[in-house]
Amino acid sequence: MTTPPDQGELTVRFLLNGEPVAVAVPPHWTLLEVLRYRLDLIGTKQGCDKGDCGACTVQLDGKAVPSCLVLGSAVDGRAVTTVEGLRGPTLHPLFDAFDHAVAAQCGFCTPGIVMAAEAYLRRLGRPVTRAEAAAALAGNLCRCTGYTKILDAVVAASERLHGAGGG
């Protein structure tokens, strides 16, 4: 297998928030850069850019990953969900719970935290404990809230999603 000396841009096809897209990307761009600077999806935040903070968290095939450490070309044929993908006819329980609990101050960490929490709650399929929520969000830093209200919000959202009363 040989790679051409000048690759130019690569056409990458993937499912973005449920819709098929094809986008031309330079081989050395990250998924984060493709989302923000090619697709204008600026909900996903660029923080440390090296895996430390979690602000860039998106879902790749349903799993939460830092998009600053995924090559844009690596998502060919896969499914990417960003915070914009949680939009729907009604407010997502996580958004609602973050609003009620005042779990966002500057809001920079919020999209990443919501995406990590959504992936975890979906997989768990039952109300989450505070300790479980904290472990699931251990890769997401928040410099404002002190995490208390974030955990309140995630626990409340999980009860609405999977609690006895049902969503």
Partner: peptide, 22 residues
């Protein structure tokens, strides 16, 4: 913002292709 340096990418699907690309 930390940019990556320029490089090309290869996406082999077999071990033999990967060894050849490497």
């Amino acid at each position: 913002m930390l940019r990556l340096p320029g490089f090309r990418v290869a996406s082999p699907t077999t071990i033999a292709e990967a060894v050849a690309a490497l």
